[in-house]
Design a binder for these strands. Structure first.
Lengths: 245, 245
DNA sequence: GCAAAAGTGTTCTCAGTACACCCATGA
DNA sequence: TCATGGGTGTACTGAGAACACTTTTGC
């Protein structure tokens, strides 16, 4: 198999994770750092999404999967292609030009952007060569290329999507409490939810299954643990045609 | 301005129209026809979406707009970029190879697919050089490339989108009756809707404005005409956070 | 016993749904 | 006067939203 890069087309991956401790929706970003040749000056020092050019033999989905695996080691994660970005000037601000010059990928590049939902606990940020780091979506660092725009659009899509489909469980451990689920919704949507109503609603879903287990190691009343059954969700799923425009 | 084509990247346009007379959701497709050199054999005879390679100075949106204008003359239409298609083998079945050979665009091509909603009455199919023709979505002709797949995904996206946003009015004349709106929903979603409930719901929307006009030239009770006010919709629009997963 | 978070019930309101007949018009 | 499609009203049901206190546990 030849690995021929296509210089015009890349994938970029917006990796969402959720930290139950800080109750924060986070993004996994990699550092971009460049000094001048004589080492006297820092030319570029910011963060970007992970991404790479596609190979000629790969589908777009495979490219995105490869890029995510390269960064995190993960393969079976929720993945969504949400938009292509192709402004001819998208990589043309000063720092980006310096960086591209350095990296020698000097073509107009259209990028197919994906977002991923991963369980934070599954990613060991110290174990990779990219100096990857989690950042709260509410407190992002300086971003290179057009990646801030890409992130914001991914986030908007995620907000809509998580209201319509039970993808939120992709961000949580397999066993979770009701209140943890509520916290994720609140973090993503930046809203407050009534706990009593939320509990009732969630517990009544057939695909939310109570386990014979409670939290351990907490210094308070340990909460009931639940799991999400994708099987049951898919079996009972039926399209509804409620016009809510 | 130089018009340099990018050989790796194209846009394809799924053009939806609605015919109130046949109550049919239609697609605008262009003919693909190729004979062998000696004229003894028809090598390719099917239909495809309109599309073209992007120019190096254009944004993706501009490319799609250009392609639609080229085909229909229209510029101010509803447009949505809904997905990129990039399977390395997407243009590699027998007929497509013959065609591509003929047309000399012989590279792997990723296409950024858009769909458009147009008012059928605004398009004069006879007035263009592409032998464009409307086809009911329920009765499509043989399609080239991977365009059937693209069409089906556009259609799925449209079905979801038209439930959440009032884009359906893009398919109707500026003045319409309630029953026409109901017919469009029924055609797109392939469902039956109760007329009384639908009327009440629609008439109660503030952005549906009754006009001092009735249908003319109909051989029955002429119906009340309404218009859609995008302004009012946008002013009153507020996100709701109903979790309906 | 106290701090901290888990867990629990009721009432109201509104939107969706089911359902069948009369009306206005042009021919 | 008749054929055609336009237009109307009511009762039921279920889901969402508002709202505050008790319980369980570890320390």
């Amino acid at each position: 198999m030849e690995f021929i890069k296509n210089p015009n087309i890349s994938v970029d991956c917006v990796v969402f994770g959720y930290d139950p401790k800080t109750k924060s929706l986070n993004l996994l970003l990699i550092k971009r750092y460049l000094e001048s040749k004589d080492g006297s000056e820092v030319l570029v020092d910011d963060y970007v999404l992970t991404g790479y050019h596609i190979y000629e033999h790969e589908t777009l989905d495979d490219s995105a999967t490869r890029v995510l695996k390269e960064l995190t080691g993960l393969t079976n994660t929720y993945k969504k292609q949400f938009k292509a970005f192709g402004d001819p000037n998208r990589l043309k601000n000063e720092k980006d030009m310096l960086w591209i010059d350095n990296e020698a990928f000097n073509f107009r590049t259209v990028t197919i952007a994906y977002y991923f939902l991963v369980k934070t606990e599954d990613v060991d940020v110290n174990k990779n060569k990219y100096q990857a780091k989690w950042f709260p979506i509410t407190d992002l660092p300086e971003l290179g290329f057009d990646h801030e725009k890409i992130i914001l659009e991914a986030y908007e899509d995620l907000k809509v999507k998580c209201l319509a489909e039970p993808i939120i469980f992709e961000l949580l451990p397999d066993k979770f409490t009701i209140n943890e689920v509520q916290d994720v919704y609140q973090s993503i949507l930046n809203i407050e939810i009534d706990n009593r109503n939320f509990r009732r609603k969630l517990i009544n879903k057939k695909y939310i299954i109570p386990l014979d287990e409670k939290q351990v190691g907490v210094s308070k009343k340990p909460a009931q643990l639940y799991m999400f059954s994708k099987d049951i969700y898919e079996k009972m799923y039926q399209k509804n045609y409620l016009i809510s425009m």
